[in-house]
């Protein structure tokens, strides 16, 4: 299965990778399990709501929110504490995580916190 997924990895303009399994609900569910097994929730909180690391479900992306940017954040890490998981996780597995994150609903009223 992994080789099939690798073969299907798309490439957008300028050679940036695109998510070959974008929108696949089964893959998103697998990604959700992985999110916990790989201890992503240890930094980003249960459901990616934010803890030591920022929220991954607010529709905001510090280092970019397109397929390639999220993929690279996970594979190569980012400054200020996001480790690089590329040595541990093959590309298809990383796309599962990307698919999971992309499948999380973003509340419409994210910018506003109000009290009656």
């Amino acid at each position: 299965m992994l080789t099939v997924l690798t073969a299907l990895a798309g490439v957008a303009s300028a050679g940036e990778p695109t998510n070959p399994v974008r929108g696949n609900a089964e893959v998103a569910a697998q990604g959700g399990v992985l999110f916990n097994v790989m201890n992503c929730d240890g930094c980003h909180g249960a459901g990616g709501l934010g803890y030591v690391g920022p929220s991954l479900v607010d529709g905001r992306w510090r280092f970019g929110g397109d397929d390639a940017a999220i993929f690279q954040s996970i594979r190569d890490g980012r400054p200020h504490g996001m480790p690089a998981y590329g040595a541990m996780l093959p590309d298809p597995v990383i796309w599962q995580l990307v698919t999971y994150l992309q499948s999380q609903p973003v509340p419409k009223d994210v910018p506003t916190l109000a009290w009656p």
């Binding site: 709501l49 934010g50 920022p54 929220s55 607010d58 905001r60 510090r62 509340p107 994210v110 910018p111």
Partner: peptide, 8 residues
Amino acid sequence: DPADVRPR
């Protein structure tokens, strides 16, 4: 951080 907005 505008990229980190959490629910209450």
